[in-house]
């Protein structure tokens, strides 16, 4: 199964004191020219799961667990987001 990790030329920060509202947020960018991207709520969870490293299923499970839903509820969305993040050069996969 494909594993994901944060790409090498990426800067990102996600901390509670930097969250802009009720939802957790990760602020992510490719170096050095951006653009900056905000990943909020469940998308932030996906990002943090990728940062911890693991397969797409690991990311799905962690996201579902923290969102309090079944894995099948988020699997398609998580998979699509991972593909978008990879296409944007923000994450890399070994698949």
């Amino acid at each position: 199964m494909t594993s994901y990790a944060v790409a090498g030329d990426v800067a990102w920060v996600s901390r509670e004191d930097l969250d802009s509202g009720e939802q957790p947020a990760a602020y992510v960018t490719r170096l050095p020219d951006g653009p900056p991207m905000v990943l909020e709520g469940p998308a932030c969870v996906v990002w943090l799961a990728v940062a911890d490293g693991g397969t797409s299923e690991d990311v799905v499970v962690r996201t579902a667990e923290l969102a309090g839903v079944a894995t099948e509820v988020v699997r398609d969305d998580v998979t699509r987001l991972l593909a978008e993040l990879e296409a944007a050069g923000l994450v890399r996969s070994d698949g």
Binding site: A11, W12, V13, D17, L18, S20, A25, Y27, V28, T29, P35, P36, M37, V38, L39, E40, P42, A43, V46, V74, D77, V78, R80, L81, E84, L85, A88
Partner: peptide, 23 residues
């Protein structure tokens, strides 16, 4: 479930200044 550009909301940056400083 998608990411959005930091300037997507209200025509201004959705990124807090402190996060911008980190980046």
């Amino acid at each position: 479930m998608t990411g959005k550009p930091a300037e997507a909301r209200h025509g201004q940056s959705a990124m807090p200044v402190a996060a911008r400083v980190h980046l």
